[in-house]
Simulated assay, not measured.
Amino acid sequence: MKAEINSIALFGTSADPPTLGHEALLSELTKIFPKVITWASDNPDKKHQLPLLKRTQLLRILVKKISHPKLEIVQELSSPRTIHTLTKALQLWPEASFSFVIGSDLVLEVPKWLNAKSILNKATIAIAMRDGWPISDKQLKEIKKLGGEFNLLPFKIPESSSSKFRERPQEGLVPRELVPFLLEENLYGLADSR
């Protein structure tokens, strides 16, 4: 899969906290897309452990660590609703074509998004396969039924989820560049688990 020249991958994440899985995904996206934009956001279906500001700081550390010219954090795209993010993205890059990047664990949610049909008319869904989260033809048909297009990304994301880290904080689940900040601010109880 090779993206067109004006194609932008949009990846919003709770980043609660960013894990090795986030790092792998962002790095892989830079090999496919000419531009990769990420941001930390509040997911209306999740309870976040840290405030958005702290999660944004953690994501900034990760983006700086990856340090790729195609990757940037554009926090102003952050919104709990994909349609609002897409509206902002269209204002910033009116000539671009967009791929919303989601993990296979979120495919089921796409048809339930606010204004899903409108989103799917303006952006492709790029699906990163996560270990332990297979997707069914039925789920993909639901996206197609709404007029959506999707691409299965040609890589797998390693099994390391933010929720696993929150349940049992372990330094080995997050990029090591995040550890000093996590310890200094005593986030997620990582300092206590040492």
Rank of each mutant, 00 (worst) to 15 (best):
I5H: 13
S7K: 01
S7E: 03
I8L: 05
A9T: 07
T13P: 06
S14P: 09
D16C: 09
P17E: 04
P17I: 08
P18K: 06
T19M: 07
G21T: 02
H22K: 04
H22I: 07
E23R: 15
A24D: 05
A24I: 09
L29Y: 00
T30C: 00
F33S: 02
P34K: 05
P34C: 06
K35Y: 03
K35Q: 04
T38Q: 08
T38W: 05
W39E: 07
A40Q: 02
P44H: 03
K46D: 07
K46L: 01
K47R: 12
L52E: 04
L53H: 13
K54F: 13
R55K: 10
L58P: 02
R60P: 08
R60D: 13
I61L: 11
V63C: 06
S67L: 05
S67T: 00
H68F: 07
K70T: 04
L71D: 00
L71A: 00
I73D: 01
V74H: 09
Q75S: 13
E76M: 10
E76S: 12
E76A: 06
S78P: 02
P80G: 07
T82L: 13
I83S: 09
L86K: 13
T87W: 14
T87V: 15
T87N: 14
A89M: 03
L90S: 07
W93Q: 06
E95D: 01
F98Y: 02
S99Q: 09
S99G: 05
F100W: 14
V101K: 01
V101T: 07
G103S: 04
S104N: 07
S104Q: 00
D105S: 08
L106G: 00
V107L: 08
L108Q: 13
E109F: 07
K112M: 14
N115Y: 15
N115M: 10
A116Y: 15
I119D: 00
L120N: 09
N121Q: 15
I125N: 07
A126W: 03
M129H: 12
D131L: 15
P134C: 09
I135G: 11
S136L: 09
